[in-house]
Amino acid sequence: MQERILNSLIHGYLSFFDILRSYDINLAVVNHLSSNILGMVYKTKRQTYVIVLNGNINYETQCKVFLHELYHIENHMPTMGYCIGLDMQHTPLELEAENA
């Protein structure tokens, strides 16, 4: 399923905003993130999610990172109070989201 969504995003059949509207998620594309941070997700005080993407990476990578962060929203965020960390690429949560 994620592969079909990824292909639809890359080829322009689907946009980030189509997905964001259906989940009520906000998106921020930021150009001043460190090059080792591709993206992140957080929950605001108003209980809405924000996916942050690094604006300095190519569109295909942004699509992959977007789906990765969406996986966290669907599968990890509802059961976790919070998760803080910028160097988490080798944790079980990250590996699970990466291999989904």
Rank of each mutant, 00 (worst) to 15 (best):
C83I: 13
E74V: 09
P92L: 15
T44N: 01
R46M: 08
S22W: 07
E74A: 11
I51Q: 12
I25D: 13
S15L: 03
L9C: 09
N54F: 10
Y42Q: 03
K45H: 04
D18V: 00
D24H: 14
D18H: 10
D18S: 04
Y13T: 01
H32T: 11
M80T: 06
L27E: 00
C83S: 10
I51V: 15
F16Q: 03
L38Y: 06
Y49M: 04
I10K: 14
Q2V: 12
H76D: 06
G12V: 09
L33R: 00
G81Y: 11
I51M: 04
D18Q: 04
V50N: 03
K43T: 06
E96D: 14
E3V: 13
K64S: 13
P78L: 06
N54C: 10
L67R: 07
L27D: 01
A97L: 04
G39L: 05
R4P: 02
I5C: 05
H32C: 13
E94C: 09
H68D: 08
E98Y: 14
T91W: 08
S15C: 09
Y59K: 07
I10V: 15
E96Q: 13
P92F: 07
N56W: 09
V52C: 14
S8C: 08
F66E: 06
G12A: 09
L95F: 03
E3T: 15
T91Y: 04
L27W: 03
I57E: 11
F16H: 01
L93M: 14
Y49D: 05
P92E: 15
L14W: 07
Y23C: 06
M1K: 07
G39S: 01
T44G: 02
I10E: 10
I57S: 07
H11A: 02
A28D: 06
H11D: 11
K45W: 04
E74Y: 10
P92N: 14
G85L: 07
K43H: 07
S15A: 07
Y23F: 15
L70Y: 10
I19A: 13
L27A: 08
D87V: 01
I10Q: 01
L14A: 06
V65H: 00
L14Y: 08
Y23G: 09
A100T: 10
I5N: 02
R21W: 07
Y49G: 00
I57P: 08
K43D: 00
F17P: 00
K64C: 02
C83F: 11
S35F: 04
R21H: 12
N7G: 01
M40P: 01
Q2M: 12
E94F: 06
M88K: 05
Q89K: 11
V52D: 01
L6G: 11
V52E: 12
L27Y: 03
G85F: 05
V65L: 10
V65N: 10
Y42R: 07
G39V: 00
T79F: 07
N36V: 00
I57G: 07
Q47E: 15
I25Q: 02
A28R: 04
V65Q: 12
R21E: 15
I10S: 02
Q62Y: 08
H76K: 08
T91G: 06
I19K: 10
F16S: 01
Y82T: 02
N26M: 04
P92K: 15
N58T: 09
D18I: 00
N7H: 05
L20S: 03
G55N: 06
A28C: 05
M80Y: 09
T61M: 12
R46E: 13
